[in-house]
Design a protein around this nucleic acid. Sequence first.
DNA 1: CCCTTTCTGTGTCGATCGATACGGAAATCC
DNA 2: GGATTTCCGTATCGATCGACACAGAAAGGG
Lengths: 202, 202
Amino acid sequence: MGTRQRRPTGRPRGFDADEALDRAMRVFWEHGYEGASLTTLTDAMGISSTSMYAAFGNKEELFRKALERYTEGPSAYLARALEEPTALGVATAILTGTIRTTTRPTGPHGCLGVQGALATSDASHAARDLLVTWRDSGYSRVRERFGRAVDDGDLPPETDPALLARYVTTLAYGIAVQAASGVGRDELQDMVDAALLTWPPC
Amino acid sequence: MGTRQRRPTGRPRGFDADEALDRAMRVFWEHGYEGASLTTLTDAMGISSTSMYAAFGNKEELFRKALERYTEGPSAYLARALEEPTALGVATAILTGTIRTTTRPTGPHGCLGVQGALATSDASHAARDLLVTWRDSGYSRVRERFGRAVDDGDLPPETDPALLARYVTTLAYGIAVQAASGVGRDELQDMVDAALLTWPPC
DNA sequence: CCCTTTCTGTGTCGATCGATACGGAAATCC
DNA sequence: GGATTTCCGTATCGATCGACACAGAAAGGG
């Protein structure tokens, strides 16, 4: 065990692709898809543009992979939140996780899934569509989780899971915008704590 | 009265600057500051780049003026909302106005003040800072209005106007993101109606 | 009428955009 | 130890970016 598989034929890669993807994710996160130029990206990744194209395809593919990395890294709180035993626990974990990720002292402020490509030129519609799908996927998972909470009796039977999921995701996206504006972590947390005192709001 | 002032010396402008600014505002609204190229802008405005520079200065100044136009046009609901007699009326008018403006069938989806320049390259930091200031100004006006509502006894004395304003603006910015993703007007309105059933939430 | 002023159309500027061609370097395969 | 494969460094591609030079056109002023 622990034995790495046989080295592939050819000259070995001179950089850590995982580390490079993390750097690229941060650049996209901070500057957005269109605001991140190839020069900015490759400088941060520490590689040449040739190496980037060989390893990741093109800018669009790099963005796609950076978003996957974001989903399983900074945004992993969502998957964990959905496993909370109660709907209120789910909502609390989602919003607290959103605040923590969007206001990290060591990272860019805001959410890659929101500010990565919210309004773009026609040339970048693929990146924008990708994030629309990403956000819609998040909403759907929350809605399904709240649907189960209704079935379980955790939420009142008259609760509309779709409406409730729309409410929580709207707060989450709004928090991402506030964080991008520089609003502090504590203030956002106080706001969420107060908002969740009434539950379910719908 | 009604007499227009004396024609200025020199060749008269061959286009309507007001109309051109409206067109530019729409382009910035739909594509964002960085996604709106000079070609896209001047094509929509129906003028040459020379005329644009002569009339508006440069791209950054054009964006600044387009944002002012947006504030007194599509976003004018905010000023009207602040004049509602009750805090609940203010919140309702703000969120309903946000939904109506960000989901117009004939206009771009979303809010210029949010998606105009949320994450940008360093070269466009001026546009981003402008929108940060714009959003912060909106928040401050709402907070001051809620402060008066507390003084008037419209809101309980233990209410924190800053927290409440942060809550309402967070919902508004979240709505802008949802609208940019294509979420429909009716669904957002149902969500807001349900959310405002509990008031004040904090 | 000519002069001044302002605006317009054409053409183009240097810089940067995303993306590659090409040759040499570094590994495995036989 | 050659052949093969893969990767890296340099240099550059055509397109587009925001911005402007220049000359002619259209108005008022004298």
